[in-house]
Nucleic acid binder design. Structure first.
Lengths: 340, 340
DNA sequence: CAATTTTGTTTAATCGATTAAACCGAGTTT
DNA sequence: AAACTCGGTTTAATCGATTAAACAAAATTG
């Protein structure tokens, strides 16, 4: 590898001080520099293929123009889309994104966080896993950050969220309006509040409509054995004496497993079971009954998270910002009105 | 934000020099340091919540333990999986990944590359877009890098690839063996060699089997208007006097559009058209005739790319490594043998 | 016991940039 | 002509760590 040229090299080759080179290349001290000298310096910089050593600059300025992003798993389409939009928004403002997947594991989460903090990222956008509340709390006053998708109600943090309660409520009302009477839900068994809110939206909507939320109609599954537990949950919902006639899924991954199950067992959608899922995904379009889904405004959320973060990087002690976006119910064939 | 503690702070608080603190925290000069002093230093480091300033360390050591990854678009499942495995493999070796999406745009590609180089990433893993050959060439002797998925036959670079020719050949032979006689392909109209190799595998297999590669049987589409052109290509293939009875898709995205088209137009798979696609994707499992697909060993490719890159970071002037993996044909319902 | 080693620690240069402050010579002002 | 301004440039400190080399005191050796 050939040695990189430094300001010093340019200075030596041009016969000036490094300070002058720095001023010229950064367009500082505008009027005060001899145009000819400036031109010679610029020409030499190009000739020697100079590029700023950001590491050195960062050390001096204590700004890296890097933001850290930690999501559950970049290979989940929801995370990937979020990552992509965040990347674009950050890029627009001259920031680079450093990424880490936590796998919902708080130990791993801490490890990634440590790595990011050691690298002096200017700020963080985080989607925290279960049991990471103290960890997140410890970041306060350490580094600017914004939570996205998930949050801790007891922590007053900057956050950008979906209205999970409202979205689930809306989805449930939609099914009721379409004539379904035995509505079930499969959601994660998780301490994460945003998921609990989805369950709450579901039960509240049922209660308000005077439809009994029969026991067992809310099935909770563990992320660790998702496929098996989702299949079991489907059996539980559809196998009862009065089987469910519609099911809401707490995430696209749950829905994916559930739809495969329905397909393998020849259960007709929406005839035997209408479906609604959180998180729209392309994949569902290939199913014969494309899935009605709650679409999150991922792009808006990403842009907003970046905006809030950068504001907090620029300026300390801003008031906490908590933004909640409504989900949009995209109605498709899987929840077509029930034939009477 | 509270000020971060530096070595100097610990040194002052403990009453020793920064050098000693550094030696202790890095476990250098093992036997030579007074155990009690070492303990005091360590205790103070914990108490003051010290974390290494990687920026400063990197400036001195000229190692960032960061690798740059530039793929087409992180929100494509293939890219996402690749990114995920690369992240894991890098993490295992103590490296962090900085990511960028190029959108197949060489200008953007250069911009990302510049940002990564300015940040002194120790090495790069790249999936280059069309027309970036000179750009890639200019990286030689500048920074260690490995190409993944794509390559330039005229450049002797480290690379980790799929055997695109062989995979397409295999897919075509499979269709022939299953009794299909009018096989078509939709592939990208691109200067990227790895894509051309897929076309070549297709045409060669047909030629060898004595089946005429009828004109128009290889349809090329542009990434810029993929949906429209894919639909048109499908019409072209299926609408001819002797319509195609099987189609191979050059990528999962093309396949996605094509399957939607088939679905919307009620064309039976595999009855009217058998299908095989490059790049296995979950989504295809929801289609009534799950797609036979060429599965790339993404994980192996990621691990290998990281291995080669790190080797080249550790040591200069290693011989170029070019690894090609076979694709695996996963046979599913979409290419079931043709009824005679 | 003088010479040498060993142990434990500090000094100081360095990485590559940024930037306040100093400097110098040429013009201007009074 | 002394004092001042200003354009153009350099000096030098600094960011926070690393590390070769120097150093002092204690322990060992011949």
């Amino acid at each position: 590898m050939q040695k990189r040229t430094s300001l010093k090299d340019i200075a030596a080759a041009t016969g000036v001080s490094t300070a002058l080179v720095s001023y010229v290349l950064n367009n500082k001290k505008e009027g005060r520099i001899n145009k000819l000298v400036a031109e010679r310096i610029r020409a030499m910089a190009v000739k020697m293929n100079y590029r700023t050593n950001q590491i050195a600059r960062s050390l001096k300025t204590s700004r890296t123009y890097t933001i850290g992003l930690v999501l559950a798993d970049i290979s989940n389409p929801f995370s990937a889309a979020l990552a992509r939009y965040i990347e674009d928004a950050a890029d627009q403002e001259g920031y680079t994104v450093v990424f880490g997947s936590s796998d919902e594991n708080p130990i791993k989460y801490k490890k990634i966080l440590d790595a990011l903090l050691n690298r002096q990222t200017d700020g963080l956008i985080l989607s925290p896993p279960e049991n990471s509340e103290l960890l997140i709390k410890s970041l306060q006053h350490q580094v600017p950050f914004v939570l996205i998708d998930r949050y801790f109600p007891t922590l007053p943090t900057n956050q950008v969220l979906l209205d999970n309660y409202g979205s689930a409520y809306q989805a449930t009302r939609h099914l009721i309006a379409a004539g379904y009477k035995q509505i079930g839900m499969i959601n994660y068994d998780s301490a994460l509040v945003h998921l609990a809110e989805r369950s709450r939206g579901f039960t509240t909507a049922l209660a308000e409509s005077g439809l009994p939320a029969a026991p067992g109609r809310l099935q909770l599954v563990h992320a660790t054995a998702l496929r098996e537990e989702t299949e079991l949950a489907m059996k539980n919902l559809l196998g009862k004496p009065t089987p469910a006639d519609a099911v809401i899924f707490g995430s696209n991954i749950v829905a994916m497993h559930a739809v495969k199950y329905l397909k393998e067992n020849g259960i007709r959608v929406p005839g035997q079971a209408a479906l609604v899922t959180f998180d729209e995904t392309d994949a569902f379009d290939l199913f014969y009954a494309p899935l009605t889904a709650i679409r999150q405004p991922i792009r808006k959320m990403a842009v907003e998270a970046v905006r809030i973060l950068l504001a907090n990087i620029e300026k300390e002690n801003l008031p906490v910002e908590q933004v909640t976006y409504p989900g949009k119910l995209i109605i498709r064939a899987s929840s077509a009105p029930r034939d009477q």
